Amino acid sequence: MDFKILDVPTTSISEVKKSPTIVFKKAKEENTPVYVFNRGDVAGVMLTQEQYESLTNEIEALHERVLDLEVEKRLAIKDLKLYSDEEVRGANADQFLTIDENDGWE
């Protein structure tokens, strides 16, 4: 599969081997990823830590938005069948739930 190469800085594997720090510096200075080529083919892309974390946070936010939209779509169904807590959890519905503050949910 051929990908369109963006108009971003590039370097070679040889240059990365010599000094990866210079490549990270270039990515930071130009505030963009740096494509790394090996014999004319893209071998990878180098990002600063800040760039990587920013992309990761953006992806996470987009996933959350998709989930929100899916919930909105399901709740918009007119003849939606709803179930009570007792119908879902049965006898456990009367038991007190322990909330784990460190379970990853907000």
Rank of each mutant, 00 (worst) to 15 (best):
S84D: 05
T56V: 08
L62E: 06
D79E: 08
L80M: 10
Y83D: 02
L75T: 06
V66G: 06
Q49V: 11
R74G: 06
T56F: 15
E53C: 01
D68G: 09
L75C: 13
T48E: 05
Q51E: 08
Q49E: 11
L62M: 12
N57P: 01
T48I: 07
T56Q: 11
Q51D: 12
K73T: 15
E50S: 00
A76H: 05
S54P: 01
E58N: 11
T48F: 13
E70G: 05
E70P: 00
K78E: 14
E64K: 02
D85R: 00
N57M: 13
K81R: 10
H63R: 03
L55E: 14
E53Y: 07
E64D: 11
E53D: 08
I59T: 13
D68T: 13
D68P: 04
V66F: 09
N57R: 09
I77K: 04
E64G: 00
S84Q: 11
S54D: 14
I77S: 00
Y52M: 02
E60W: 05
E72R: 03
E53S: 02
Q49L: 04
L80D: 12
T48R: 04
E60P: 01
D68L: 04
T48P: 00
Y83H: 04
V71Q: 10
L75N: 12
K73V: 11
I59H: 06
E64P: 02
H63K: 09
R74V: 12
Y83T: 01
D79M: 07
L69D: 15
H63N: 11
I59C: 04
E53H: 05
K81E: 14
N57F: 11
S54A: 09
I77C: 04
E60G: 04
E86K: 05
R65Y: 13
N57A: 09
E70V: 10
V66E: 09
Q51K: 00
D68V: 03
Y52P: 00
V66D: 10
L82K: 02
E72Y: 15
R65H: 11
E86Q: 03
E64Q: 07
L82P: 02
D79Y: 07
H63Q: 09
V66Q: 06
L62I: 10
L69H: 14
E53A: 00
Q49W: 12
L75I: 06
T56R: 05
T48Y: 05
E64H: 12
E50V: 01
D68W: 10
E53T: 03
V71D: 09
I59S: 01
T56W: 10
A61P: 02
A76T: 10
